[in-house]
Amino acid sequence: MIQPKYRRSFGDLSERALAFWLLLPAALLLGSVALYPVVRLFYTSLFQRRLTDETGSNPVFIGFANFAQALSDERFWTALWNTLLIVLVTVPGALVVGLLLALLANLPFRVRWPVRLGLLLPWALPLVFAGLIFRWFFDSQYGVVNDVIVRLGGERLLWVTTPDLLFWAICFSIIWKSSSFVALILLAGLQVIPKELYESAAVDGANRWQSFWRITLPLLTPAILVAAIFRTITAFQTFDIPFAMQNGGSSFETLAMYVRTMSIENLNFGYGSALAVLMFLISLAVTLVYLRYVRGADD
C-alpha cells in the first residue's frame, strides 16, 4: 500500500518561499505607496524643476545645489527653529497634561465612559478643525479667550497677529489636541500596574505622593517613552494647526508649511523636494531613536 503523500496546498514550497509569496502583496503595496514616493522625492530634489518655466517639463540636473541653497536660506532656518520650538514646548506639555488626564481617567469612578469619551474626542477631531476652532477662540474681537480676559479686567490681546502670543496660542492648541493621544497610551500603561503593589505600599505606610513617585512613575516609564517618541515624530511634522490658525498665512511657519508653500503654491518642485528630503531625514533620525528603544525593550 502506498502512503498518500502529504501535499501542501501551495505546491512544494519551502517555508521560506511560502513566507516570501505571502509577504509579497504587502511589500508591493508598501513599496508603491511609501518607498516609491520617497525615492522619487530624493530624485526630484537633485533637479532644478519649476512648473512656472521650461524646467517644468525638462528638469535640469543640478546635483546637491538645492540642498546648498537650503542651508543658506534664512527662511529654512527660521522654519526649522520654529519647528524645534514647537517640539520643545508641546512634547513635554502634552506629556504632563496627558499624564494628568490618564491619572484622572484611571480613578475608580463608578461611571467611566464620560471620562473616557472626553479623552477620545480631541484625539478623534481632525487637526485642521482643531486649528479652526482655536482660531475662533483666540479671535481678538469675538473670541472666548479675550472675553474672559476683558471680564477679568484685562486688555484685549491680538492673539493671532502678535508673533509671541500666536506661538503660545498654537502651542496651547497643539497640547490640547495631542495630550489625549498621550493619555490613551499612558492609561494603558497605568492599567497593567498590579494593584497589589499599591496595597503593600499602603501597608508599609507610604502616602499617595510616595507611591506615585516610587511605583507609578517608574513602572510607567516605558509607556511615557513610547508616547514621547510618537509625539516628537508628529511634532516635527506640525502643519495643520498653525496653518489653519493663521488663515494659511506664514507669520509663524513650520518646516512642513514651508515645504507646502514652496511646492504646491510656488510650484518650485525641485527646491520644495529638497526641503522635504531634509524634513524626512530629521523624522528618520527620530524614528531610528525610537526603533533602537523598541529593540532595547525586546532584549
Binding site: 491680538l158 497677529t161 502678535t162 498665512g249 506664514s250 507669520s251 503654491e265 510656488n266
Partner: peptide, 14 residues
C-alpha cells in the same frame, strides 16, 4: 505671497 505676507505683518505691527 511677498505682498500679502508683508502687508499683513505691517498691519499686525510686526
Amino acid at each position: 505671497e511677498a505682498i500679502r505676507v508683508n502687508t499683513n505683518q505691517v498691519l499686525a505691527r510686526q
